[in-house]
């Protein structure tokens, strides 16, 4: 069953805020994790693992390379 993308976005933002201390207002779907949000590969691994638990999905370890923007992650988690 596909997840609701707005719910995924909201949940993902919560995880990112908790993990990085970023201001939720600064996180929108077009932002890239690495350059815009300054999230390195280890923080990204933590965020994706927390997302796996929260949304009960499996995100392969090497997806870090392909999930560049917040929207990429939302789409992947929601099952696009």
């Amino acid at each position: 069953m596909a997840l609701d993308k707005n719910e995924v976005l909201e949940g993902l933002i919560e995880i990112i805020v908790d993990e990085t201390g970023a201001d939720p207002g600064d996180i929108d779907p077009d932002k890239t994790f690495a350059d815009d949000l300054d999230i390195d590969s280890l923080s990204m691994m933590t965020i994706l693992t927390l997302a796996e638990d929260r949304f009960d999905v499996e995100i392969p370890d090497d997806s870090i390379q392909t999930l560049q923007t917040v929207q990429d992650a939302v789409d992947f988690i929601a099952g696009d």
Binding site: S41, L42, M45, T46, T49, D61, D62, I64
Partner: peptide
């Protein structure tokens, strides 16, 4: 080593 997957295992 496969650093990223060991990292994930070690943390969680």
């Amino acid at each position: 080593q496969d650093g990223p997957s060991v990292y994930k295992w070690a943390v969680f």
